[in-house]
């Protein structure tokens, strides 16, 4: 899953090395409109529904955090 998320991230925001980063939101690497594109791609790819409540920095600061959120949403389904 992490690999696929990395692929999506590099499409949404090319030219950034996302691996190992844990401050993607806090450091301003991903802006709010990047988040929206990312959410749309993640929803399509993993067939989940990321809601407004999920849009908090803790869920998007790293690839691992995104994977954890997606797994939780998949389990909730």
């Amino acid at each position: 899953m992490e690999k696929k998320i990395l692929e999506i991230l590099s499409e949404v925001k090319p030219g950034v090395d996302f691996e190992g980063r844990t401050d993607l939101i806090d450091a301003g690497v991903l802006a709010s409109f990047d988040i929206i594109s990312l959410v749309s791609e993640l929803n399509d790819e993993f067939d989940v529904e990321i809601s407004v409540v999920d849009l908090v920095p803790e869920n998007f600061n790293s690839v691992e955090a995104m994977a954890k959120m997606i797994k939780r949403l998949e389990d909730e389904d």
Binding site: S32, I36, V39, S40, I50, V52, L55
Partner: peptide, 19 residues
């Protein structure tokens, strides 16, 4: 504005269709 205007509009069904 981001949490209560931008995100709700962006994640709305209308917006998803537009996208």
């Amino acid at each position: 504005l981001r949490d209560y205007i931008f995100y709700p509009i962006s994640l709305s069904k209308f917006f998803a269709n537009l996208s």
